[in-house]
Computed example of a mutant assay.
Amino acid sequence: MVDQDILIIGSGVAGMSAAQYASRAGRSVTLIEELAPGGQTMFIDMIENYPGFEEPISGYDLAVKFQTQAERFGAKIAYASVTELVKEKDTFIAKSSDETYRAKAVILATGAKHRHLGVEGEEEYAGKGVSYCGTCDGPFFRNKKILVVGGGDTALTDAIFLSKLSEHVTIIHRKDRFRGQDNLVRQVERNKNIEIVMNHTLTKIEGDGNKVTGVILHDLKESKEYHRDFDAVFIFVGMLPQTGLLDKTLLDHDGYAMTNQRMETRLPGLYAIGDVRDTVFRQLITAASDGAIAAHCSSEYIDELEGMEYV
């Protein structure tokens, strides 16, 4: 049994930020990660909008810096998969693949995974023209031919954002109407830089081995496939929040952890940060902010808990 004040599950920017702030505040902290530190940050080729870096930095290099800072303040990192999380009185018990952890507070930073289409070329060109975040990667494709796949709020919002960077944005949707908010639909329809193509799906992403060069589209009404040239493909077909450790009463209808502005869930002592929680904007900078807030508030929670123990 490993004991610590705060247990953090997930080592993306949110988790690392929480580890840094919590350990710097004098708390004993263990961060558990099942793969490698950095989470989805590791898969970002270049980051050019993180404050403090004049030149773009790779996701890997940024993740290493976060890890180094957290460890310098005393945070410990363990590599394992957490299989169960329960609360017994005022103590959380987390069982992993090779150890059991006990903590007074838990910060969940397990993130969310982008739904993939599963089409040929998608994995091969991930980070080479295939992206799941317009604000992250859009600036790399200024004045390029951009394809957006999806029909929900995220697809529409990012198409609008991308249209500010390029006059050649095409959005395809598999149905004959978008499922996003009406005001977003109207903005897209009025945007002269966005071409709308309905009743279409993407069946293949093509490239030259180094970058995306085009796609194969399927016209569902005409039941035919054809090629079009594109430099980038942005896919927005939903997210899969990694909330399998939580009771469903702590989740919203989309499966995200519900929190207040202090990152608290409905279960006292349990916090959720980053992409795993219901939030309006998913960026590295907001994830880092979530982590700092959760570290501060969980430390306050422990102070109150320990005060009660001595009454």
Rank of each mutant, 00 (worst) to 15 (best):
R174F: 15
E124S: 07
G118E: 10
A70P: 06
D137T: 07
T249W: 02
I293W: 00
G52Q: 10
E123W: 03
D229T: 06
Y132M: 09
R228E: 15
Y132C: 12
K87S: 06
F161M: 05
L184C: 04
G12R: 06
F53C: 06
A63H: 06
L305I: 07
R266A: 07
I146P: 03
Q67A: 07
Y50N: 04
F234I: 13
F141T: 04
Y301I: 09
I77K: 04
E34R: 15
I293C: 00
S23Q: 06
A112S: 11
G244W: 00
V148P: 02
M263T: 14
T201N: 13
Y50E: 08
D254A: 04
I172G: 14
F141G: 02
R115F: 04
I235C: 10
C297P: 03
D275N: 11
D176F: 00
F66L: 07
G38E: 14
G244Q: 13
H116S: 04
F43L: 14
L305W: 08
D158G: 01
I8Q: 01
I93W: 00
L246F: 15
V276K: 03
A36F: 13
D208S: 10
K211Q: 15
G138T: 03
G111V: 12
A155R: 11
T68V: 13
I32A: 10
E195W: 01
R190I: 07
F53M: 02
D137V: 02
E309H: 06
G121K: 04
C297D: 15
T154W: 12
L240M: 11
E34G: 05
A159F: 14
D158A: 08
H227V: 09
I146G: 04
S17G: 13
L117N: 09
V212M: 00
L156N: 10
F234V: 08
S58Y: 11
K175Y: 08
G138P: 13
G59M: 00
G274F: 05
V169T: 00
D182M: 08
G180Y: 09
S81H: 14
V29K: 06
K76I: 11
K87M: 12
L108V: 03
Y125F: 13
N193A: 08
R27L: 14
K144C: 01
N260D: 15
K89M: 05
E195H: 08
S81K: 14
K113Y: 11
A232T: 10
I6Y: 10
H114D: 11
L156F: 03
G118C: 04
K104E: 14
V119D: 00
G15H: 10
R142C: 10
T286P: 00
D208T: 03
I194L: 05
R277A: 08
G138A: 08
F230H: 02
Y256D: 12
M198R: 01
K175W: 00
G209P: 14
G180V: 09
